[in-house]
Design a protein around this nucleic acid. Sequence first.
DNA 1: GTGACCTGAGAAAAGCTTTTACCAATCTCT
DNA 2: AGAGATTGGTAAAAGCTTTTCTCAGGTCAC
Lengths: 325, 325
Amino acid sequence: MAAAAAVSISTASKALNDTGRMGSETRERVKRIAAEIGYRPNALARGLLSKRSFTIGLLTNDTYGRFTLPVMAGISDALVDHGVSVFLCAIEDDPALAQIHVDAMLDKQVDGIIATGKRLDRRLPVDLSNLHVPVVYAFTEGTQNSVTFRSDDEQGARLAVEWLVKIGRRRIAHITGPEDFFSVRERAGAYHEVAGHREPVLYGVWSENWGHEAVEQLWKRPGEKPDALFCGNDQIARGAVDGLRERGVKVPQDVSVIGFDNWEIVAAQTRPPLTTVDMELKELGRQAGLTVLALAEGRPVEPGVRKLPCRLIVRQSCGGKAPTE
Amino acid sequence: MAAAAAVSISTASKALNDTGRMGSETRERVKRIAAEIGYRPNALARGLLSKRSFTIGLLTNDTYGRFTLPVMAGISDALVDHGVSVFLCAIEDDPALAQIHVDAMLDKQVDGIIATGKRLDRRLPVDLSNLHVPVVYAFTEGTQNSVTFRSDDEQGARLAVEWLVKIGRRRIAHITGPEDFFSVRERAGAYHEVAGHREPVLYGVWSENWGHEAVEQLWKRPGEKPDALFCGNDQIARGAVDGLRERGVKVPQDVSVIGFDNWEIVAAQTRPPLTTVDMELKELGRQAGLTVLALAEGRPVEPGVRKLPCRLIVRQSCGGKAPTE
DNA sequence: GTGACCTGAGAAAAGCTTTTACCAATCTCT
DNA sequence: AGAGATTGGTAAAAGCTTTTCTCAGGTCAC
């Protein structure tokens, strides 16, 4: 301990924390010696007293990490400056496992918990509503009076469809995921609002195969073909692009294709690279992190659902040119 | 505190920990009351005394999580039963950020650190060799006298090429990533050993585009074409499959394609789904977790590099049938 | 010169558990 | 019945910081 190395005992604490009264010469000396011997205070002892562990828990049921990783990156990015570390707990939709992790985190006196998931309209399989630590929900459904962050899928979908309209497309079809997803309904709603009801909405699953198959369905129908496809996610878009290529339809010359999610590994590797909608999950994580920190510090936070705007990522699958800013 | 609720003070501790001497009736009563009021001991206080925080840190520079997530899942899986939680620290190849995270973890008295990355032949940008907590390396290069877990890429590549040979392929080409990757050289070595030197090795980058382009190069050459492609990862394999399809070459009838990594999102969604080599990263994580725990508990662990065997995942891109087991 | 004030630093308590030491009361055995 | 052993439980210390209290010595003013 620094006390032994220097001269006193609790004076060291005051010296290092720039608190209390003491001679500036003593203060400097203690600091210097502490630096020399590489002294670092024990966060456990500090936490025991201050009731702050500078630790939060991130609970997720998103095994693949598609949504969790960007959120995690945002949280970490926002909180590392505040000395906060993050426990990552992956709970495969297993209530018992979830409870174990929550208990472990509470035992370790986390300052707060962020719950995140893979869909906006599902709860995590564990009740976090009556904990004595603050809970913030990010990209998963929260409880009454909680703070919840989510992407504004309606605005994102509008962004996509308006872009297609702007570059001159008129027969815009929508190929998307299962209708029981809230985001699917919300995106489809925005699609109808902007594009009208001239083309059908094809509900299916979140896979490339479905995108491929949906193109087949569309092109087998008699009559005019769509000149644009707004896809519910990037995987569907990729399948659609493949399907179009196999039919000899050129993307983006004949048909514009737009995705959703900006999952780089899919969107950027598709040929042509996909124009798509980014849900700004990192920013979402950042805000969730700052919010849970605020709550932990007792600062007031208005409860409610906060919708964060999406952003259009223009690549080459639509033609058109990047928006002039 | 349970002491208040029941009768005594430190007797509670002994009751709950099944330690010390006391009347079984008292013990049961304390336990019952503790359960009733939902008492849970403060892990910070416990850790302060026992010098064990039941917390470890996972340090990674693999932003995308392609390798980290399975490893993390394995670690968590192995350690959750022991009450150990995991700090996840993503350090984007930024030495300063890495140091901040390491310091934060040490302050929080982690019982150990697992370092993981995205390549076997690179170090993390931070020195972990003289910490006073045990460090285990997983899927990243370790230091002298450390414990390092890695996949056996040579064995994995052999598995792949032997499979191609077994199903009757003879002209097997190898399309892979940059030659400066250790795993690339190791896989290529095994390829040469099993397949001979009849077909070239094409070094490139880890992208679909490269797989696509490599097929073009191969098929533009005069003479007989390969009847099988062993690809350095699944993305290259996917690009190759696309390239073959565009040339009218049937997979797997005309050419077998085999990937590496078993990145489900790529391998399972390719048409046809890719036969590929799984590096068993979850198992790798599990072993790394158990090892760091053993070291933290002072149990002796032999230093050195442990190579974990890969497993062949048979899907449809090679033809042949699943191995009879 | 003496009382009020200030300054620099140490002592002690608190935060929560676990462990060791200890004490009083009850048993056991001859 | 009394010495020694056992039993059931409490008191106290330790682990590391931070914070509040206290105190000795010096300074200043009158």
